[in-house]
Amino acid sequence: MYISEQNKRGWRLLGVPFIFAIFLLAVPIATMTALSFWTQDYLTLIKTITFENYKQAWFQPVFQTLFARSLLISITVTFFTILFAFPIAYYISFYGGKRKALWLFLITIPFWTSYLLRMFLWKVILGYNGVLNSFFEWLGVITEPLTFLLYNSNAVVLALVHGWAPFAILPIFVSLEKIDRSLLEASNDLGDNSFNQFFRIILPLSMPGVIGAVLIIFIPCIGDYITPKLVGGPEGLMIANMIQVQFSKANNAPLAAALSVTSLLIVGIIALAFVFLNRKYLKNY
């Protein structure tokens, strides 16, 4: 077979990332999928195909609760992140003036410290002897520390919203920047006040950015492991924590694999739905 020089060069360039993708992405997923159909007896894998793991993963109440909670937390986090990020992106885009670059730079500052540290900081802020409780005690509003601040789902949501906000601001900012300002003048000229203009022009035209932000936040959030571990307590645990337990302490890798594949499917379906939604918005451009 004849391969042109150009094609050869293309393959050479593709080669390394391709091998990388095969061994670090395709192979692990395939292994995990295979594993999810097997069973484990203490340390030995029994390689007869069974749907037992999926039956457990899908129908045992504890897993159902965890899946539901993970979904709910992710949806809540995504919702609030977008809600907080949109006004910031809006402000930078429409009122940033000559300081747009500076604002964007400031938004990236949280990335200068590690994610783990930022999540850990919430323990310091929300904890029993934490910043908030000390402050309230000093104010005299409370006599003994509030315990509902930390170690529950709300703490997880709060920490995740904080952690993911920059990832939402940037795509929304980009989509707002792309809106032709003469469209705003036109809508104004045609009788819109600022309120109508926002809902009829700005919001629909920034939807690609919003949907992008939703995907960027929702997908990693549903599988987040470290945040619930740090600030979630027993009530804030998510599916990723269960997968970790099944893999290590419970010694049930096949069940962990089945749980993993299931969450992969859930995320995949939701992500695809959003991609199709975005295509609907994008086709007009």
Binding site: E185, A186, P204, Y285
Partner: peptide, 10 residues
């Protein structure tokens, strides 16, 4: 009538 017409793309 704007110079670039400012037709709403959506």
């Amino acid at each position: 009538v704007f110079q670039n017409y400012a037709i709403f793309p959506h």
